[in-house]
Amino acid sequence: MKTQENGNKHKGYRRIIPSMTALLEFEAVARHNSFTLAARELGVTQAAVSKQVKQLEENLGTQLFQRLHRGIRLTSEGQALFAVISDSLQKIAAVFDRISEGSGEQELVLSTTATFSQLRVMPRLGNLRATLPQIQLRLATQMFTGDLRNHDVDLLVRYGNGRWEDGSAVLLFEEEIFPVCSPAWLARNTPPTSLHDLYTSDLLDADATSEGWMTWPTWFREQGHTPPKLRYSLRCHLYTDTIQAALHGHGVALGWGRMIDHLLASGELVRLTELTVRPREAYYVVIPHGRSATPAILALIDWLRDALPEAAR
């Protein structure tokens, strides 16, 4: 084996890897899961991309994609090749960025939902600059999380069970959910002392989404009660709007503790009851396949997990 490895080194990479162009075009096809989108990104024809990938498969002596009736899918060999190429290209791109910008900072692209970026990240940005000055953060905010292969991100925050096929998940923190309101609303209303009192309060709610956001009926059922048909003071599509309505004194919202800890610490929101729900799901950071868990990425994960909001400090 050692003799074979030394022989390969003397051959040079050009002998071992016949076409760098084919590797680049294969990476684009695998990332987009589409020959058409890859060709559009690369500025060439779909036929040219297909030819390069076909030649790569012939050189390797194995199939990298399964050609299905509608679309394509990576084979196990294709997945292995895509993982190492993506990782290598990411490292090369990072070095190019540092050299071209002449800066010691490293930009990391963090994909989150609007709720996480606005309620968890923004209140802590001052602390990020003080704690990790070498990291330049770029937020890629999405309405909902999607397939990581279709996004040029270094890490992504997801809420769920931690089992996803497009990356490696690292636990951030668990969550608890409880009723909150503003001091102004509390001053105008009698504090609820029972679940029945909560039924008849000025309830604020957000639509359930694929992320698993809990609504008031679900929260009440988790307390062992099935409420009558609830009458809401306001319902919103986005959870961030629900929290804004609570801040303005319009009613009682469900507080996701990890998202609103800065508002509780500042006194802008108050917790109404000790009753709480601890979901089975949790928040995770997902590192896409092909990305390495670099020291900078691990440092950012630690910061996302442990950083105190400005109000708490």
Results as ranks from 00 to 15, higher is better:
A246Q: 01
L247Y: 05
T226L: 08
Y199E: 13
T218M: 13
I243M: 04
T193L: 08
T193G: 06
Y232K: 06
T240C: 05
L234G: 00
W185H: 13
T240M: 03
H196K: 11
M214D: 05
A246G: 04
L230K: 05
H225Q: 10
T193A: 10
L247S: 06
R231D: 05
S233V: 00
R188W: 01
A246F: 02
H237Q: 12
H248F: 09
E222I: 01
P227L: 02
P228C: 05
E211L: 15
H237V: 04
S210Q: 10
Y239K: 07
T240S: 10
P227V: 01
T190L: 09
P192F: 06
S201W: 00
Q244E: 12
D207I: 08
H248R: 13
C236F: 08
L198T: 01
W219K: 12
W216F: 08
S210K: 14
T209C: 15
G249I: 03
L204T: 00
R235V: 04
Y239W: 05
Y199L: 05
S233D: 02
I243A: 00
T215H: 07
Q244Y: 03
D205R: 01
N189D: 04
S233P: 01
E211Q: 15
W213A: 04
T218K: 14
E211T: 11
S194L: 04
D205H: 08
T209V: 15
L198I: 07
T193R: 14
W216Y: 13
A245L: 03
T193P: 00
P192W: 11
D207S: 15
S194F: 02
T226A: 13
W216E: 05
W216Q: 05
R188C: 10
D197G: 14
W185D: 00
S201A: 15
E222G: 05
D207F: 15
M214Y: 05
W219P: 02
I243V: 15
Q244D: 13
T190C: 06
K229M: 11
P192T: 05
Y239P: 02
R221S: 14
S201F: 01
H196Q: 12
P183S: 05
W219F: 13
P183E: 06
H196M: 06
